[in-house]
């Protein structure tokens, strides 16, 4: 049975202005299905991060449209876009982007706080996520003291805090060793297969390439 389309990008174009304008995307169209694990590959400067930013509602394209969860993102105002991101997307970053002075648990709790879940409920929900990702022993350590793999798992827990319909991950394993890279890849695979979460990843990691349901190659702003 054909899966429902979670994110649909149509003829995306992105030009960064400047003395010499950079055409990062030159008409990219892409349908991403619900529960699909999609890997976007391509050389540096091919437009992978730009594509991820646009389909993740972080960047407005100069042309084309993106529809996610039935909403046309390119028509939303800044505030509406922020609310949409909060309710529908989770992000995982190459550099983890954790708050280093906070504990792992507090980093995840913060994601609940900004969604209006406070106090004990937030603590319990954060702990559940960290336990699910095998981090129960490290929950109360400051993020700065965690290993790269642990940090990335905390970042994934944070991304899952709002139970998003899609996770967008930019080079999530590039700073991890082989063992932790494999753990993180398995988490993404499990998210897509068991929970039906759409996972869009940009990466060069061959392990993700093997695990991904579909791989698309982006080169010079074109698929």
């Amino acid at each position: 049975m054909q899966k429902e389309i979670a994110i649909a990008a149509h003829d995306l174009r992105m030009t960064y202005p400047g003395v010499r304008p950079v055409h990062a995307l030159k008409g990219v169209s892409l349908d991403i299905h619900q529960g699909e694990m999609l890997l976007v590959m391509g050389p540096s400067g091919s437009g992978k991060s730009t594509l991820l930013s646009i389909i993740g509602g972080l960047l407005t394209p100069t042309g084309g449209s993106v529809t996610a969860a039935g909403t046309e993102l390119t028509h939303l105002r800044r505030k509406e876009l922020a609310r949409f991101r909060l309710q529908n997307f989770g992000y995982v970053f190459q550099g983890f982007n954790l708050f280093n002075s906070m504990t792992g648990s507090e980093n995840v709790e913060l994601a609940f706080h900004v969604r209006g879940i406070q106090g004990r409920s937030a603590r319990r929900a954060a702990r559940d996520l960290l336990v699910h990702l095998g981090l129960e022993e490290h929950a109360n350590r400051p993020a700065r003291d965690l290993s790269g793999g642990e940090k990335q798992r905390v970042a994934i827990a944070r991304a899952l805090a709002g139970n998003p319909c899609a996770i967008l991950a930019d080079e999530p394993t590039s700073q991890l060793d082989a063992e932790n890279g494999a753990i993180v890849t398995n988490i993404f695979t499990d998210l897509a297969r068991s929970r039906g979460t759409t996972v869009v990843i940009t990466s060069h990691d061959y392990r993700i390439r093997r695990a991904a349901e579909r791989v698309v190659l982006l080169d010079d702003g074109r698929l």
């Binding site: 609310r83 949409f84 991101r85 909060l86 992000y91």
Partner: peptide, 14 residues
């Protein structure tokens, strides 16, 4: 800025 940017990316309002 990266931390504030992360919050903004998550969808935290101004």
């Amino acid at each position: 800025l990266q931390e504030y940017g992360t919050l903004k990316a998550i969808g935290v309002n101004d």
